[in-house]
Design a protein around this nucleic acid. Structure first.
Length: 495
RNA sequence: GGCGCCGUACCCAAGUGGUAAGGGAGAGGUCUGCAAAACCUUUAUGCACCGGUUCGAUUCCGGUCGGCGCCUCCA
């Protein structure tokens, strides 16, 4: 089945926006580079995962059938140098005698916990590297038969000299690279660009995860897992491959070399292993890249400790285009939180207009949000290289300017939010339900009593007492409104 | 040294060869005992700077300055 509308997406290979052409009509196989589970994922990492989630949601909204595969790099070393720093998890794990396997399981769990909190849909296939050692070995054997490998010093390397299109994705031929400028080049390599496929000589002292292989007991190189798992779950043609922009020069460049080398695609072939490469730009914090070495990592749970909702961060991310660096500051996150709350607030008013809590569900179920013109506008913007800032703008227009029956507006908002993934309508329904309770018979007798007390004080002219009670209630999230019809109160939007 | 990206209001941030979205924050107003909320109004003749192309440039080209990223295991 063909999609309703084709997605136009920037392709790193070729550096321009292209209409997505899929291997099978209407079906998209997307492979995303997932986390390395030996540390917490920070909010910069999650910017990329949010991009991938939005891509998937946009594809789905456009009518594509999506198969989303993500790897989890859990091949771990637990070496002495990995223990440096003040990572409490690693230190305690070591104290308690936990293995690399335990640690990987721990961080994998953390990753998916944060992902869920950010409304990131779980990939259809989550592939753990340690479950695919056999596939990696087979792939290395294929490369061996293709004469693209050599052994040196006990390790198996990929020989980039045998792959004539090496570096095409990153335009490496246009660069005057300084091999070894930052990291020492392994002297056993023939070319600095060569990379390890299988190691039997570990540079790590305390290697915990080891497997038997035709080249001896050891462990796989990093890049091979993605090639092997992508091929296993998506076949020899991948429609979209995603990752952070930092993966372009090395990881993805090497993946292409491995995969196309194994498949046997040469520069004479028009066919590519991956037809569309999609990369997310970096999050910048205090005018610098977020990295462990700079010590400026921020995690989702730290934002939560500061009183933010994970979805505030998602809103923040959606406010900038994925191909531009985005600067994270306390002020910009605060602005995103206010904006999201205001949006929920407006949608909650619409929900109240639709009716009582139960009726909202029923009415929404009967409405066709995708029929709303503003949804169509949003979908078109999503199809235009994932222009989420503009989709947000359309949603704001829907929430504050559009006219029509409240249920149609709300249904349209729900449809747009299906692309954004902000959980706005869900939050609005919850907020509206709380307000319904407030407007009718309050469940909390204590609050009712305080409201009555304040009214009495006001009538007696004791405004000091009245204001004190109002402040007390505000601290509990209860907002009072004195209207000509009398006092009303409601729960603040806080979801 | 090479490669790539970027510089838009107080902040974040869209965008286009034809005269600058949206959000946050601030200001004024209506309402109020005072507030809050809501609603209304409001904040860039200007898009780093200098040239060029053009009827017309924030948008295209060149240069300058500034910022960020990458140059081999970092989303």
């Amino acid at each position: 089945m063909a999609p309703k509308r084709a997605l136009r997406l920037y392709n790193t290979l070729g550096r321009r926006v292209e209409e997505l052409r899929t291997h099978q009509p209407g079906k998209v196989g997307m492979y995303c580079c997932g986390p390395t589970v030996y540390e917490y994922q920070h909010i910069g990492n999650f910017r990329t995962y949010i991009l991938e989630d939005v891509l998937r949601r946009a594809l789905t909204a456009l009518g594509y059938e999506v198969r989303h595969v993500m790897n989890v790099t859990d091949v771990g070393h637990l070496t002495d140098d990995a223990d440096e720093g003040d990572d409490k998890m690693l230190q305690s794990a070591r104290r308690e005698g936990k293995s690399a396997w335990d640690i990987a399981a721990f961080y994998t769990e953390q990753f998916f916990r944060d992902s869920r909190a950010l409304n990131i849909l779980e990939p259809h296939v989550v592939a753990r590297a340690t479950n695919h050692i056999d596939e990696m070995i087979e792939l290395i054997e294929r490369l061996e038969s293709a004469k693209l490998t050599y052994e040196a010093n006990g390790n198996v390397f990929y020989d980039v000299a045998g792959f004539d299109r090496y570096g095409e994705l990153a335009l490496l031929d246009r660069q005057d690279l300084r091999a070894g400028a930052r990291i020492d080049v392994d002297s056993s390599k023939r070319n600095p660009e060569d990379f390890g496929l299988w190691f039997t000589r570990s540079k790590f002292e305390r290697q915990e995860m080891l497997w038997d292989s035709p080249w001896g007991r050891g462990y796989p190189g990093w890049h091979i897992e993605c090639s092997a798992m992508a091929m296993k779950y998506l076949g020899e043609t991948v429609d979209i491959h995603c990752g952070g922009i930092d993966h372009v020069p090395v990881h993805h460049t090497n993946e292409i070399a491995q995969s196309e080398g194994a498949i046997g695609l040469s520069s004479h072939s028009d066919r590519r292993w991956v037809s569309h490469w999609c990369h997310g730009e970096f999050l910048i914090i205090d005018s610098a890249k977020m990295s462990k070495s700079k010590g400026n990592l921020v995690r989702i749970d730290q934002l939560v400790e500061q009183g933010y909702e994970p979805l505030d961060y998602r809103y923040f991310v959606l406010g900038a285009h994925y191909r531009k660096q985005q600067n994270f500051t306390a002020a910009s996150l605060e602005a995103a939180r206010s904006a999201r709350l205001n949006l929920v607030d407006r949608l909650a008013s619409l929900a109240s207009e639709v009716g009582e809590a139960g009726a909202v569900d029923e009415q929404l179920a009967g409405a066709d949000g995708e029929a709303h013109p503003l949804y169509q506008e949003a979908l078109e913007l999503a199809a235009s290289d994932l222009s989420m800032p503009r989709v947000l703008e359309v949603l704001w227009r829907l929430a504050k300017e559009a006219s029509g029956p409240a249920v149609d507006l709300l249904a349209g908002a729900a449809a747009i939010d299906g692309i954004l993934g902000l959980g706005l309508v869900e939050a609005a329904r919850r907020t509206a339900a709380e307000r319904d309770v407030a407007a009718g018979a309050p469940l909390d007798g204590e609050i009712r009593a305080l409201v009555d007390q304040r009214e009495k004080a006001r009538q007696e002219g004791d405004y000091a007492t009245a204001d004190r009670i109002r402040d007390d209630l505000a601290a509990r999230g209860v907002e009072l409104q004195d209207t000509p019809e009398g006092v009303r109160w409601r729960q603040q939007a806080s979801v």
